[in-house]
Write a protein that binds this DNA or RNA. Structure first.
Length: 180
DNA sequence: TGAAAGATTCGCT
DNA sequence: GCGAATCTTTCAG
């Protein structure tokens, strides 16, 4: 497996484009010699102006990471139980991003990764990584591997109550690790 | 200062 | 299929 880090210039600007782009890329967490790698197979976009997005209400202490330049991590606690991992997708000062909903385990993962709350457990991602630059040298970063291009299917987002009809969920077709 | 809702998951019916 | 778990954020009073 040839693995290389993604530079910020590799990432498309705009949360919807980024969410689509992320399908097929990999997330890497290196921690004390342990390497955990998951291939992203399902995402959802939460662009500026989206009523379902955390950034919709403006910048707050919680969602500040969504307002960082594209390629930064936004990690928050959902339902008091689950950490959810997002990648910011706009320019600095603009709030938007992509939620990563499922991974295909490639290395170091021995727990289920089909679901946004479960993949963070498997990858050992929590609040420590909120605001981390995923395009920088660090313990958590985005990469690409050599593999045939992902075949992507689009659908409505899951688990939200506003703007439910937007086709902003992306998943790799027929991948068994996609949630549900 | 209090209360309600939330980008989920798991267990039981 | 439905409700509980669990706690932070946000908004109302």
């Amino acid at each position: 497996m040839r693995l290389r880090p993604l530079a910020r210039a590799d990432l498309p600007s705009g949360s919807v484009s980024l969410a689509r782009f992320l399908i097929g890329t990999v997330l890497v967490h290196e921690d004390a010699g342990i390497q955990r790698i998951g291939r992203i197979v399902e995402t959802e976009a939460y662009p500026p102006g989206d009523q379902a997005a955390h950034a919709y209400i403006g910048k707050t202490a919680r969602n500040a990471s969504l307002f960082l330049e594209r390629g930064h991590a936004y990690v928050y606690l959902s339902y008091g139980i689950h950490w959810l991992f997002n990648v910011s997708g706009e320019g600095a000062g603009i709030g938007g991003g992509a939620l990563v909903r499922a991974l295909e385990p490639l290395a170091g993962l021995d727990r289920a990764t089909n679901g946004p709350g479960r993949l963070t457990v498997a990858m050992s991602i929590d609040r420590r990584f909120d605001g981390v630059d995923l395009c920088a040298r660090g313990p958590l970063w985005l990469g690409s591997i050599e593999r045939p291009p992902a075949r992507i299917v689009t659908s409505k987002r899951i688990g939200i109550s506003k703007a439910v009809d937007r086709p902003w969920r992306f998943a790799e077709r027929d991948n068994p690790y996609v949630s549900r």
